[in-house]
C-alpha cells in the first residue's frame, strides 16, 4: 500500500515540476507581458496544485493536510488577484499587446 501511495505521490510531484518548467519557459518565450501572465498564473498554480496533492498523500495529521490546502487556496487567490492587478496597470500605462500578423 505504501509503495503505491509513494509512487502516486512521486508521479504527482514530478507532474507538478513539469508545469513549473512550462511556466518558466512561457515566461521566457511569450511575446508580451499579458501572455506571460497567462503562463505564470495558470501553469505555476497547476504545478503547485499537483505538488500539494502529492504531499497530501504523505501527511500525518489532519491539520497538516488542511494547512497544505489553505496554502494552495491562498496562492491561487493571491495569484489571480496579482495577475489582474499587473494586467490592469499594464493597460493603464498603454503597454501594447502583441498581436499575430496575418
Amino acid at each position: 500500500m505504501t509503495v503505491i501511495l509513494n509512487a502516486l505521490s512521486a508521479a504527482l510531484i514530478l507532474a507538478g515540476a513539469f508545469f513549473f518548467l512550462a511556466g518558466t519557459v512561457g515566461l521566457l518565450r511569450f511575446p508580451d507581458v499579458y501572455t506571460r501572465l497567462h503562463a505564470l498564473t495558470k501553469a505555476d498554480n497547476l504545478g503547485l496544485g499537483l505538488v500539494v496533492l502529492g504531499l497530501l498523500l504523505q501527511v500525518e495529521s489532519l491539520s497538516e493536510g488542511v494547512k497544505l490546502l489553505v496554502i494552495w487556496g491562498l496562492v491561487l487567490a493571491a495569484g489571480a488577484t496579482a495577475a489582474h492587478l499587473v494586467a490592469r496597470t499594464a493597460l493603464e500605462h498603454d503597454i501594447r499587446l502583441w498581436r499575430r500578423r496575418e
Binding site: F20, V33, T41, L48
Partner: peptide, 17 residues
C-alpha cells in the same frame, strides 16, 4: 516594468512549492 513585477508571481508560487 510590468515584466519585472512578474518576479513576485514567480517567487511566490514556485518558492511556496
Amino acid at each position: 516594468p510590468a515584466d519585472r513585477i512578474l518576479a513576485a508571481q514567480l517567487f511566490g508560487t514556485t518558492g511556496v512549492a
